[in-house]
Amino acid sequence: MNVFRLIGDMSHLAAIIILLIKIWRSRSCSGISGKSQLLFTAVFTCRYLDLFTNFVSIYNTTMKIFFLASSYATIYLIFMKFKATYNRNHDTFRFELLIVVSVILALLINHEFSATEILWTFSIYLEAVAILPQLFMITKTGEAESITSHYLFALGSYRGLYILNWIYRYYVEGHLDWIAVLSGIVQTGLYCDFFYLYITRVMKGKNLTLPA
């Protein structure tokens, strides 16, 4: 554990909590892509199956359980409790495509051809692109509530901080995992436009609206 990973994990945790608070307080999931949330739930489920087979630390186990539980809770809020507020007609990204491509890539490019390793690799590839339905939805509506943009900023920063963690681990521990690193770079890259808008608009107290 190094400082980049710790701040990255805290940023990830903050993102999830911000999202739950937004939905719970406003009693609405308006502006949130249910498809991205479904993909994140699939990511956590496939990656954290090792919860039952591989103990790392109390910290690791606690975080995994929290991420799993909170993602299922988010899905419940969006598709059941507050489903009347879900903007289904704006959430039209073909997310099946992301799953298919991630499955194929995981079968072709992995560290070891075993069930757990392929599930882990699939979760890494899928996570890299899981935000696309959400970003697509914002592009379609042309705006996002400020709390939604805080959520996205925290969520995007998390993988960016992980890149710093991987650079650190490469130099200090000699550890380098290309699958995680390249996917993390793609994942962070997808947020570039959003980061620019966030810094130039939301941080100055304006709403996040896309230039026409």
């Binding site: 995994k64 992980y162 995680a180």
Partner: peptide
């Protein structure tokens, strides 16, 4: 194996 070292990450 080396890839197992990534599994301590979230």
């Amino acid at each position: 194996k080396d890839s197992s070292k990534s599994k301590d990450e979230l």
